[in-house]
């Protein structure tokens, strides 16, 4: 979008106004996330910039909220629970999801649309409804308030992401490779691990990252399906925001922002690698 040399004054004005508007919208998108980062280093228990902070006085900044996060037993328990639940749920949804995605990408699958709709449904149904249903059903079968119950629920929520990313990778998969492998004497299992898996690995990993983030970020379902013993990091944040809001939340939030930047970078790199492997130029 270049401004042509023959543009009229009105066009010029509009051109720059439009850029300013877009700049403001980008500011709206990114500013809230960036604001909490300096605030998390606040030396006081405030949620706004103190005069000292604005004057860039080093004394007005401190790591005390981070210290609180790493020493407070409640936050540490929550962190431990999150770290125990998310990988288990991810493992479950990635293993089952990849298998099913391979099945779904074969040429003759009866009722593919219906199956796809069922497998994607956890992503479509509003979380509060999933949470309500799971709460009712899991308390009927004795899974409510157990670690297994939360892991199963989170795995179910993560599965659509795995299915979508892995089937998307499999679209570009050349099936003559598996036939060639079979022709050379490899069994289906060996073909899968030696030929198919390395090629779809980027999709599997990014699906896994999505599943991980879904579980790691999830509050609504764990609020209902879990009990005090499964209090995760987002749950602790939710309680903190609702009851006694403390700046430690901002420290946690900053840590999570850093984690999500790392994950975003990983997924993007994986996407490029996958496209390169499939012979598409990265865009």
């Amino acid at each position: 979008m270049e401004l042509p040399p023959y543009a009229t004054t009105g066009e010029r004005i509009w051109f720059y106004t439009f850029r300013v508007i877009c700049g403001l919208i980008f500011f709206f998108l990114i500013a809230p996330i960036l604001t909490i980062i300096p605030l998390s280093f606040n030396a006081e228990n405030f949620f706004t910039f103190t005069p000292g902070m604005l004057a860039l006085d080093p004394d007005a900044y401190s790591m005390r909220h981070y210290e609180d996060f790493f020493t407070n037993s409640q936050w540490q328990t929550a962190l431990r629970n999150s770290i125990q639940i998310a990988p288990a749920a991810t493992l479950l949804s990635v293993s089952l999801g990849t298998l099913a995605a391979v099945g779904l990408s074969q040429s003759h699958v009866p009722a593919r649309r219906a199956i796809m709709a069922i497998l994607i449904s956890p992503m479509i149904v509003p979380l509060i409804i999933s949470a309500a249903g799971m709460y009712f059903f899991y308390s009927r079968i004795g899974l409510q308030g157990t670690w297994i119950g939360v892991v199963l629920a989170h795995a179910a929520l993560g599965i659509p992401f795995v299915i979508i990313t892995v089937t998307a990778t499999l679209v570009g998969f050349d099936n003559s490779l598996t036939r060639a492998s079979a022709n050379l004497g490899a069994g289906p299992v060996r073909t899968f691990f030696k030929v198919q898996m390395p090629l779809i690995l980027p999709g599997v990993i990014s699906g896994g990252l999505f599943a991980f983030i879904t579980s790691f970020d999830e509050v609504v379902v764990v609020l209902f399906v879990g009990s005090a013993g499964q209090k995760t990091l987002p749950w602790q944040m939710f309680i903190g925001l609702r009851e006694q809001i403390s700046p430690t939340i901002l420290a946690v939030a900053t840590i999570l922002v850093v984690i999500s930047i790392a994950l975003l970078t990983t997924v993007e790199l994986l996407r490029r690698r996958s496209e390169r492997l499939r012979g598409l130029s990265p865009s």
Partner: peptide, 11 residues
Amino acid sequence: WTSLLVRTSAW
């Protein structure tokens, strides 16, 4: 990609 709770707490 940022956690929903992070954005809510920011607001």
